[in-house]
Simulated scan of single mutants.
Amino acid sequence: MATVDLSRKLSELHDVFSPSEGTRPAEEARDLVVDIAHICLKELPENELAFCCSELFNKDTGILKFLQKAVNKDEFSESKGQMLEFLYPFLKKYGQHLLDHVVDIKNTCLSLFTRDSSAKVKAKTFDVLVQVIKLTSRAPMANELDIQKMIEKYFISLTQPSKLSQTVKHGIYELLGVIAEVYPEVMLPYSVLYTYMLLFYFDLQ
Protein backbone atom coordinates (compact mmCIF):
# COMPACT_ATOMS: atom_id res chain seq x y z
CA MET A 1 0.00 0.00 0.00
CA ALA A 2 1.33 3.42 -0.97
CA THR A 3 -0.08 4.85 2.24
CA VAL A 4 2.55 2.92 4.18
CA ASP A 5 5.04 5.48 2.87
CA LEU A 6 3.06 8.38 4.31
CA SER A 7 4.48 8.21 7.83
CA ARG A 8 8.01 8.18 6.44
CA LYS A 9 7.33 11.08 4.10
CA LEU A 10 5.86 13.16 6.93
CA SER A 11 8.81 12.36 9.18
CA GLU A 12 11.22 13.41 6.43
CA LEU A 13 9.20 16.58 5.90
CA HIS A 14 9.75 17.62 9.50
CA ASP A 15 13.42 16.69 9.26
CA VAL A 16 13.96 19.56 6.79
CA PHE A 17 13.99 21.92 9.77
CA SER A 18 17.19 20.21 11.00
CA PRO A 19 19.07 19.75 7.73
CA SER A 20 22.28 17.81 7.35
CA GLU A 21 25.28 19.45 5.72
CA GLY A 22 25.00 19.54 1.94
CA THR A 23 21.25 19.07 1.81
CA ARG A 24 18.73 21.44 0.24
CA PRO A 25 15.85 21.59 2.72
CA ALA A 26 13.58 23.88 0.70
CA GLU A 27 13.79 21.64 -2.36
CA GLU A 28 13.38 18.52 -0.27
CA ALA A 29 10.27 19.95 1.39
CA ARG A 30 8.77 20.82 -2.00
CA ASP A 31 9.35 17.30 -3.33
CA LEU A 32 7.97 15.69 -0.18
CA VAL A 33 4.77 17.71 -0.33
CA VAL A 34 4.28 16.53 -3.92
CA ASP A 35 4.78 12.92 -2.79
CA ILE A 36 2.34 13.32 0.12
CA ALA A 37 -0.31 14.81 -2.18
CA HIS A 38 0.18 11.96 -4.66
CA ILE A 39 -0.38 9.38 -1.92
CA CYS A 40 -3.46 11.00 -0.41
CA LEU A 41 -5.41 12.41 -3.34
CA LYS A 42 -5.99 9.13 -5.13
CA GLU A 43 -9.10 7.07 -4.48
CA LEU A 44 -8.61 5.46 -1.07
CA PRO A 45 -10.49 2.59 0.55
CA GLU A 46 -12.00 3.41 3.92
CA ASN A 47 -9.22 1.86 6.00
CA GLU A 48 -6.46 3.65 4.09
CA LEU A 49 -8.35 6.95 4.22
CA ALA A 50 -8.65 6.68 8.00
CA PHE A 51 -4.92 6.04 8.21
CA CYS A 52 -4.13 9.01 5.94
CA CYS A 53 -6.29 11.36 7.97
CA SER A 54 -4.73 10.18 11.22
CA GLU A 55 -1.21 10.68 9.90
CA LEU A 56 -1.83 13.94 8.05
CA PHE A 57 -3.35 15.64 11.07
CA ASN A 58 -1.14 14.18 13.76
CA LYS A 59 -0.54 17.00 16.26
CA ASP A 60 3.23 16.47 16.29
CA THR A 61 4.19 15.19 12.83
CA GLY A 62 1.30 16.20 10.59
CA ILE A 63 0.92 18.76 7.85
CA LEU A 64 -0.55 21.50 10.05
CA LYS A 65 2.43 21.21 12.38
CA PHE A 66 4.71 21.60 9.36
CA LEU A 67 2.90 24.77 8.29
CA GLN A 68 3.07 26.16 11.82
CA LYS A 69 6.80 25.49 12.08
CA ALA A 70 7.44 27.00 8.65
CA VAL A 71 5.30 30.10 9.07
CA ASN A 72 8.20 32.53 9.51
CA LYS A 73 10.61 30.72 7.19
CA ASP A 74 10.59 32.37 3.77
CA GLU A 75 12.72 29.63 2.24
CA PHE A 76 9.75 27.27 2.55
CA SER A 77 7.24 29.56 0.82
CA GLU A 78 6.90 27.25 -2.16
CA SER A 79 6.27 24.14 -0.09
CA LYS A 80 3.79 26.01 2.13
CA GLY A 81 1.89 27.08 -0.95
CA GLN A 82 1.96 23.53 -2.30
CA MET A 83 0.70 22.15 1.00
CA LEU A 84 -2.28 24.52 0.92
CA GLU A 85 -2.90 23.59 -2.72
CA PHE A 86 -3.04 19.94 -1.62
CA LEU A 87 -5.18 20.62 1.44
CA TYR A 88 -7.94 22.31 -0.57
CA PRO A 89 -8.82 19.34 -2.84
CA PHE A 90 -8.29 16.90 0.02
CA LEU A 91 -10.88 18.82 2.05
CA LYS A 92 -13.19 18.98 -0.94
CA LYS A 93 -12.88 15.25 -1.59
CA TYR A 94 -12.91 13.86 1.93
CA GLY A 95 -14.33 16.72 3.98
CA GLN A 96 -16.83 14.69 5.98
CA HIS A 97 -13.94 12.64 7.35
CA LEU A 98 -12.11 15.79 8.47
CA LEU A 99 -14.67 17.56 10.63
CA ASP A 100 -12.62 16.86 13.76
CA HIS A 101 -9.74 18.81 12.25
CA VAL A 102 -11.44 21.86 10.73
CA VAL A 103 -10.84 24.13 13.73
CA ASP A 104 -7.10 23.37 13.62
CA ILE A 105 -7.09 23.89 9.86
CA LYS A 106 -8.83 27.25 10.28
CA ASN A 107 -6.41 28.36 13.01
CA THR A 108 -3.39 27.38 10.92
CA CYS A 109 -4.68 29.31 7.91
CA LEU A 110 -5.29 32.39 10.05
CA SER A 111 -1.79 32.11 11.47
CA LEU A 112 -0.34 31.97 7.96
CA PHE A 113 -2.43 34.95 6.89
CA THR A 114 -1.32 37.00 9.89
CA ARG A 115 2.31 35.99 10.25
CA ASP A 116 3.63 34.75 6.90
CA SER A 117 5.39 37.34 4.77
CA SER A 118 4.51 35.74 1.42
CA ALA A 119 1.46 37.18 -0.34
CA LYS A 120 1.23 33.95 -2.35
CA VAL A 121 1.01 31.87 0.82
CA LYS A 122 -1.59 34.24 2.31
CA ALA A 123 -3.66 34.04 -0.87
CA LYS A 124 -3.65 30.25 -0.91
CA THR A 125 -5.24 30.10 2.55
CA PHE A 126 -8.56 31.39 1.22
CA ASP A 127 -9.59 28.39 -0.88
CA VAL A 128 -8.96 26.20 2.17
CA LEU A 129 -10.97 28.50 4.44
CA VAL A 130 -13.85 28.71 1.96
CA GLN A 131 -14.01 24.93 1.97
CA VAL A 132 -13.93 24.86 5.78
CA ILE A 133 -16.81 27.35 5.95
CA LYS A 134 -18.92 25.37 3.47
CA LEU A 135 -18.11 22.08 5.16
CA THR A 136 -19.13 23.23 8.63
CA SER A 137 -22.54 24.61 7.74
CA ARG A 138 -24.83 23.23 10.45
CA ALA A 139 -22.02 21.01 11.73
CA PRO A 140 -21.67 20.53 15.52
CA MET A 141 -18.29 22.28 15.73
CA ALA A 142 -19.40 25.42 13.85
CA ASN A 143 -19.39 27.49 17.05
CA GLU A 144 -15.77 26.53 17.68
CA LEU A 145 -14.72 28.26 14.47
CA ASP A 146 -15.48 31.67 16.04
CA ILE A 147 -16.71 33.08 12.74
CA GLN A 148 -17.26 36.55 14.17
CA LYS A 149 -13.61 36.83 15.17
CA MET A 150 -12.61 35.77 11.66
CA ILE A 151 -14.81 38.45 10.13
CA GLU A 152 -13.36 41.14 12.39
CA LYS A 153 -9.79 40.08 11.60
CA TYR A 154 -10.32 40.37 7.87
CA PHE A 155 -12.17 43.68 8.08
CA ILE A 156 -9.30 45.11 10.12
CA SER A 157 -6.90 43.90 7.43
CA LEU A 158 -8.96 45.63 4.75
CA THR A 159 -8.55 48.95 6.55
CA GLN A 160 -4.81 48.62 5.81
CA PRO A 161 -5.06 47.96 2.06
CA SER A 162 -1.54 49.14 1.24
CA LYS A 163 -0.21 46.09 3.09
CA LEU A 164 -2.23 43.64 0.98
CA SER A 165 -1.72 42.48 -2.59
CA GLN A 166 -4.66 42.58 -4.98
CA THR A 167 -4.85 38.78 -4.91
CA VAL A 168 -5.06 38.76 -1.11
CA LYS A 169 -7.72 41.48 -1.04
CA HIS A 170 -9.75 39.58 -3.62
CA GLY A 171 -9.45 36.44 -1.47
CA ILE A 172 -10.71 38.27 1.61
CA TYR A 173 -13.78 39.60 -0.20
CA GLU A 174 -14.53 36.17 -1.65
CA LEU A 175 -14.22 34.54 1.78
CA LEU A 176 -16.44 37.15 3.42
CA GLY A 177 -19.01 36.58 0.68
CA VAL A 178 -19.07 32.85 1.39
CA ILE A 179 -19.41 33.53 5.12
CA ALA A 180 -22.38 35.77 4.34
CA GLU A 181 -24.02 32.91 2.44
CA VAL A 182 -23.32 30.16 4.96
CA TYR A 183 -23.55 32.15 8.21
CA PRO A 184 -25.83 35.12 7.33
CA GLU A 185 -26.82 35.66 10.94
CA VAL A 186 -23.17 36.24 11.93
CA MET A 187 -22.38 38.43 8.93
CA LEU A 188 -25.55 40.56 9.20
CA PRO A 189 -24.07 43.24 11.53
CA TYR A 190 -21.26 43.76 9.01
CA SER A 191 -23.36 43.63 5.83
CA VAL A 192 -23.53 47.38 5.21
CA LEU A 193 -19.81 47.81 5.81
CA TYR A 194 -19.04 44.82 3.60
CA THR A 195 -21.18 46.17 0.75
CA TYR A 196 -19.62 49.62 1.00
CA MET A 197 -16.06 48.27 1.04
CA LEU A 198 -16.79 45.87 -1.81
CA LEU A 199 -18.17 48.66 -3.99
CA PHE A 200 -15.15 50.79 -3.16
CA TYR A 201 -12.83 47.92 -4.02
CA PHE A 202 -14.37 47.35 -7.44
CA ASP A 203 -14.41 51.09 -8.17
CA LEU A 204 -10.64 51.00 -7.89
CA GLN A 205 -10.25 48.16 -10.37
Rank of each mutant, 00 (worst) to 15 (best):
residue 31 D to G: 03
residue 168 V to E: 10
residue 18 S to T: 14
residue 115 R to K: 14
residue 153 K to I: 07
residue 195 T to W: 02
residue 78 E to K: 09
residue 28 E to I: 07
residue 70 A to G: 09
residue 128 V to Y: 08
residue 203 D to W: 07
residue 140 P to F: 01
residue 97 H to K: 14
residue 84 L to Q: 03
residue 192 V to T: 13
residue 45 P to N: 14
residue 93 K to D: 06
residue 34 V to F: 13
residue 3 T to S: 15
residue 118 S to T: 01
residue 47 N to P: 04
residue 193 L to A: 09
residue 6 L to D: 05
residue 136 T to L: 04
residue 15 D to H: 11
residue 42 K to D: 06
residue 130 V to H: 09
residue 170 H to S: 12
residue 106 K to W: 15
residue 56 L to M: 15
residue 50 A to L: 08
residue 138 R to Y: 07
residue 41 L to D: 10
residue 121 V to C: 02
residue 150 M to W: 14
residue 89 P to I: 10
residue 44 L to G: 10
residue 92 K to G: 10
residue 17 F to V: 00
residue 174 E to Q: 09
residue 72 N to G: 07
residue 56 L to Q: 04
residue 164 L to G: 08
residue 36 I to V: 11
residue 105 I to L: 11
residue 194 Y to F: 15
residue 148 Q to M: 12
residue 90 F to G: 06
residue 166 Q to D: 05
residue 81 G to F: 00
residue 126 F to Q: 07
residue 112 L to H: 12
residue 163 K to N: 11
residue 186 V to N: 01
residue 37 A to N: 01
residue 41 L to W: 06
residue 116 D to C: 08
residue 135 L to D: 13
residue 120 K to F: 08
residue 94 Y to N: 12
residue 58 N to W: 06
residue 125 T to E: 03
residue 203 D to L: 11
residue 35 D to Q: 09
residue 106 K to C: 12
residue 202 F to W: 05
residue 8 R to C: 04
residue 153 K to P: 00
residue 77 S to M: 00
residue 28 E to H: 08
residue 165 S to E: 05
residue 169 K to G: 04
residue 115 R to W: 13
residue 95 G to Y: 08
residue 62 G to C: 01
residue 37 A to T: 03
residue 42 K to T: 12
residue 43 E to D: 15
residue 127 D to F: 05
residue 146 D to A: 15
residue 104 D to T: 01
residue 184 P to A: 01
residue 21 E to F: 09
residue 186 V to I: 14
residue 169 K to Q: 07
residue 76 F to P: 08
residue 143 N to W: 00
residue 58 N to S: 14
residue 121 V to T: 06
residue 158 L to Q: 03
residue 63 I to S: 06
residue 177 G to A: 02
residue 63 I to W: 02
residue 144 E to K: 12
residue 12 E to T: 12
residue 150 M to L: 15
residue 54 S to E: 14
residue 15 D to V: 00
residue 123 A to T: 07
residue 24 R to G: 00
residue 119 A to C: 06
residue 95 G to S: 10
residue 53 C to H: 09
residue 130 V to I: 15
residue 72 N to S: 10
residue 115 R to N: 12
residue 159 T to P: 00
residue 59 K to F: 04
residue 53 C to S: 11
residue 182 V to E: 10
residue 39 I to W: 13
residue 27 E to Q: 09
residue 172 I to Y: 01
residue 154 Y to K: 00
residue 89 P to C: 10
residue 190 Y to S: 05
residue 177 G to K: 01
residue 55 E to F: 03
residue 117 S to A: 12
residue 83 M to S: 12
residue 20 S to H: 10
residue 83 M to F: 09
residue 93 K to G: 04
residue 171 G to H: 03
residue 65 K to Q: 10
residue 71 V to F: 07
residue 203 D to A: 13
residue 122 K to Y: 01
residue 32 L to K: 04
residue 131 Q to R: 11
residue 182 V to N: 02
residue 74 D to T: 09
residue 68 Q to W: 05
residue 129 L to S: 05
residue 100 D to N: 15
residue 67 L to Y: 04
residue 176 L to M: 01
residue 58 N to H: 15
residue 114 T to Y: 03
residue 142 A to Y: 07
residue 99 L to Q: 06
residue 70 A to I: 02
residue 72 N to K: 13
residue 32 L to I: 04
residue 4 V to Q: 11
residue 109 C to H: 13
residue 103 V to N: 06
residue 200 F to C: 08
residue 61 T to I: 05
residue 88 Y to W: 14
residue 169 K to R: 09
residue 58 N to V: 07
residue 94 Y to T: 03
residue 135 L to S: 15
residue 50 A to P: 01
residue 3 T to A: 15
residue 105 I to F: 11
residue 179 I to T: 10
residue 93 K to Y: 08
residue 134 K to M: 14
